[in-house]
Amino acid sequence: MSSRLITEIGFGAIVAAALLLWLGSHLVPKKIPPLTSVLSALMRKRSTRIALVLAWWWVGWHFFVQS
């Protein structure tokens, strides 16, 4: 198996896990907390808020302005 395929499978597995978690949080919210509730708890701290907002903004900047 080539290194590139392993890298792509790794990213694919992470995306699939994210979709499964998102789906699970809608189907069984008592077992898997929705991402928004986790973010809500984490974002009470200003530095976490800014770091997350900056990370999100950079994704848009990188793909739509910079790349």
């Binding site: 509730s37 986790v38 701290k45 200003r46 800014i50 848009g60 900047w61």
Partner: peptide, 27 residues
């Protein structure tokens, strides 16, 4: 993209840190 980023940062920077709260179970 710049305007959206600046707007989001201003909105989030204005408020101080709040008392921490436990992350939901299995978070």
């Amino acid at each position: 993209v710049t305007a959206i980023g600046v707007g989001a940062l201003v909105v989030e920077w204005r408020d101080p840190s709040l008392p921490s709260q436990p992350v939901p179970r299995r978070g």
